[in-house]
Amino acid sequence: MSHELGAPIVVIDAIEKRFGALVVLRDISLTVRRGECVCVIGPSGSGKSTLLRAINALVPVSKGSIRVDGIEVNDPDLDKLALRRKVGIVFQQYNLFPHKTALENVMMAPLHVLKQPKDEVEARARRLLAKVRLSDKEGAYPGELSGGQQQRVAIARSLAMNPTLMLFDEVTAALDPETKKEVLVTIRELAAEGMTCMLVTHEMGFAAEVADHIYFTDGGTIVEHGPPAEFFKNARHERTRAFLDQVL
């Protein structure tokens, strides 16, 4: 997709993440601009999810700098709550709150975290559920919804905080092909509207279609990156070509 790219929203500079002796991320640098959709692909265990979780401080990094809309994430005095109001994340396992209905799930954070008035929050939650095509499921509990429906509620729940940036962590990996599509359509619409997105995905076709820029990671480093047309047609590195041969 192509739109006017704005100022950098995420600037990652030479970060490193270790779990004891194990280095999960090594010298990773990347930039995501406003309105851009960036996809991170690569084999399992290459540190993609850790990278995403580092951006909203769910995982602390050992070295380097991550700036999100002006906030330095790798800082002991980081105001995590301020950061997380700007960054929405959607997980592979949806993680909806099972004791709340779809509508309540979407309403909870704006209501209790942003302390916005209830009628306003409710009206916006209904609009967001309509946007992910789940208006008829407002009163349903997560246990009563399919995987794809739950994932769309999770997307609406993140959007309810009006984030500057949306992170998607293998959001379709637990879904069957049919429900996968509804979720991908939702994400594509978001990207088309100009939402700044960062996706970790195994859906190469989708990445090729939706991404402005693709990063290929392996062994905790970025092996190569580029716009999708170039990346998928003429990968420069042997490792990238081997990976693409396997998955395409």
Binding site: R84, I89, F91, N95, A109, H112, S158
Partner: peptide, 22 residues
């Protein structure tokens, strides 16, 4: 499940709010 903590945290709930509401 820890996923409940993670999603509450990433929605900027405080630890107390996460415990109390979720």
């Amino acid at each position: 499940p820890v996923g409940q903590w993670e999603s509450a945290e990433s929605l900027a709930f405080t630890r107390f709010q996460t415990l109390w509401r979720i």
